[in-house]
């Protein structure tokens, strides 16, 4: 498959637009481009949407995407937040449907723990390598 050749360019969904992803003509979902009236609820929704992956243009979060699917996902998130659901419960609801892939926030699991152990390992490594580099005495 020869896609258009392009370097260091952001090409959003439109470029991936194989016919499969052709966009429809219905208006966007009610809460795709509309904020919740309660600012604290909207802030919660926004924080969650920033960390959910758009399933159509897979390199973007749903809060950064013009894809209809992202709009529909924002709609679901905002409706559920408005209904009083906890953001993490909504994340969980989506993970149950799409797997961990849909969330940009990796969970600590048997597979992902090295991601979270990495800082400690690196610091330990630095300590091991550096401990002989210092002379014991500071200037008096």
């Amino acid at each position: 498959m020869r896609r258009r050749l392009a370097l260091l360019m952001l090409a959003l969904c439109a470029l991936f637009a194989a016919p499969v992803l052709a966009e429809d003509s219905l208006p966007p979902a009610p809460y795709a481009y509309r904020q919740l009236d309660d600012p604290s609820q909207e802030a919660k929704a926004k924080a969650l949407m920033d960390t959910l992956r758009c399933l159509v243009c897979q390199g973007q979060s749903i809060s950064d995407s013009d894809a209809q699917m992202a709009g529909d996902m924002r709609n679901v998130v905002r409706m559920r937040i408005a209904a009083g659901e906890d953001p993490e419960a909504i994340r969980q609801w989506l993970i149950e449907r799409y797997g961990d892939y849909v969330s940009y926030e990796p969970r600590v699991t048997g597979l992902t723990w090295p991601l979270f152990a990495a800082p400690l390992v690196m610091l330990a490594l630095a300590f091991l390598l550096l401990r002989k580099r210092f002379t014991g005495k500071d200037a008096a």
Binding site: A29, P30, D72, L94, E96, R97
Partner: peptide, 9 residues
Amino acid sequence: VREVQLAIG
């Protein structure tokens, strides 16, 4: 609004 589509993954 893709309600069911999202619900079935």
